[in-house]
Structure formats: C-alpha cells, structure tokens
Write a protein that binds this DNA or RNA. Sequence first.
DNA 1: ACGAGATTGTTTGTATTCAAATGAATTTGA
DNA 2: TCAAATTCATTTGAATACAAACAATCTCGT
Lengths: 162, 162
Amino acid sequence: MPDDTADLADTAIRVAAASRPADTDAAEAYRLDAQIGYLLRRASQRHLAIFAERIGDLTSTQFAAMARVYERGPLSQADLGRATAMDAATLKGVVDRLQARGLVAMAPSLKDRRRVIVDLTAEGRALFARLATAAFSISEDTLAPLTAEERRSLLSLLEKIA
Amino acid sequence: MPDDTADLADTAIRVAAASRPADTDAAEAYRLDAQIGYLLRRASQRHLAIFAERIGDLTSTQFAAMARVYERGPLSQADLGRATAMDAATLKGVVDRLQARGLVAMAPSLKDRRRVIVDLTAEGRALFARLATAAFSISEDTLAPLTAEERRSLLSLLEKIA
DNA sequence: ACGAGATTGTTTGTATTCAAATGAATTTGA
DNA sequence: TCAAATTCATTTGAATACAAACAATCTCGT
C-alpha cells in the first residue's frame, strides 16, 4: 500500500493549472490505458513473456526469421528484412546470431555481388520443425482469454492496422 | 513441370510422412503472417512510426511515463514502472532521459529512504499539455483503417489479452 | 555506352526491453 | 525483538529497433 502521493506537495500547482487554455483540457482527458499504442505494447509484452517461457534459447524475432526462410527458401538479407518487417540493421544482428549458432548459412549471390543469400542449415531446419508445435501453442496461449470468434476478429483487425 | 502435379506430389509426400513425428507437419502449416505475435509487432511498428512522425523529440515510452505522472501525481520509480508496464531497468533509463531534459524531477522519499519520487517539472507539465492533442490524433491515425465499431472492438480485445 | 539514381550490406549511435545480480532499506513472521 | 523475506533503486549484459551515413554495386534512361 504505497502512498507517496503526499510526499511532494504539488496540490497548489495542480489547482493553478486547472484554469487554463484548451491544451490542458486535452491533457486532462488523456487516458493512457485507453490508447492503442499502450495496449499494443502490453499485449506484445505478454506474448513475448509466453514465448520466452516456452522457447528459452531463441527469441521471437529469430524464430520469425527462420519461419520465413523455411516458408520461402533462400533469400537475400534485404528480401528477408522486408518479409519479416525488420530494417536492415536489425535483420543483420538477427541473422548474425543465427549464423553464429549454426542455424543459418550465408553465401554471396552469383547474380548480384551486393547481395548475401541467407538459408537455413540442416540443423536450423530441424530445429524449426521441432519448435513449430510449441510455436503454435504459444499463439494459442496468448489468445487464451478470447473465444474462437474473438480470436479471428482480433487477428483480422490487427491485420488492417499493420 | 506443371504446378498441379507438384502439388499432388507434395500432398503424397506429406501423407506418406504422416507416420513420422508430426514436427514437419506443424512446420509446414506454420504461417508467420497469421501469428498473433507477428501481427502485434507490425501494428506496434506502424503506431511507433506515426508517433515519431508527429512527435519527433519524445518517444512513445517517454510520453507514456509523463502521461502517468500527469494523471496520478508524484510516484516512486517502482510505482511508476508498474503503472506504465516497464521494468525497473527500463524505467530508470526513461526517467533519466526525461530528467536530463528538465521534464521530470527526482527527489528522495521522506517516508521510505529506498524510494525516489518522480514528478513532472513545470516545463514537463506544460509540454505534456501542449502535446496531448497531438497524442490523441496519433491514436486516431493508428486506428484510421477501422470503423468506430471496429476500434472499440480492437481496444476491448487487446485489453483482454494484455 | 554511360552517368544519375537506386539498392544492398554494413557500421554507428540512441532508445527501449528484459534477465540477473547487488546493496540498502523496509516489512514480516515467529 | 530480530532474523528472514521482500522491496527498491541501480548496474551490467544481451537483444531488438530505427535513423543516418557509407562504399560497393546495379539499373535505367538517354
């Protein structure tokens, strides 16, 4: 039962601020809990916590990159970045860590000397196959508070604003 | 080599492999685009991009911390962290940067010598009031692809899984 | 054929985000 | 009362995430 609200007497300041332009009205009306950005951050947090609990030694982002390569086959870093919604700098860190663990391999493109092609190794492919079931149940658990109808609705609405 | 024969061959292989561990089936069925975690990440990304475009010199997280202090008055770091869904280490970085810019002030609690009380400065309070209108329009723009009914639905569903 | 402009990969810097460890202070329970 | 457990703030380290700048390479229009 922490109550440090009275620790610093700011009541006077607040009363003085009560009679001012329309800026203050907007500020008074602002409710963090009702903002889409805050709710998205909290929902992501819960999902990431569930992911980490189930799949400890691979991050959600690393798994997403592996999933995309599994789906589409070998891709350049730029293409993989676009396909996973990661910018070039972020993706480089992700694939570097996957490469360091022997889960992906990189090879220069023969057609375009700028490009580096990323592919899953046999080990990476095997690991992804082994974890796919767990990944499904992670999504399931994240959506556990919702009915089947609500789950479809949420995914569809998120798709629209993504 | 026509596509449909490849499809049939693929199905045959899958059926033949049904006796093996279900791992590979789950891997084949996994669709990144349909996963709640991926959709949450992409929706957050779009929201953060809109935020940065509108309010360049303050991050969404920093603004959230200021909003909470504006709502609730002076809080300890631990309380503010709980109230904004940030862990202690994260919150410290956020309030340190706000303090460096003169937007919040820190003072030791008189009741509990472990605690550090965070409050908005006059400048921080004024800045928050000035930006509150922009913050509303950021949430508005993030939800722009949705109808009013869909917006209510999305916020309600996110609240349930947060 | 060639040069302007775009693309690719990389690096650097800043800002979350969390886990884990630590020391100081407070609260709890026997 | 007093030792154990908890809380608080802080630090460190690893992993996204994005902006900005860079050199190497490619594409396209003329």
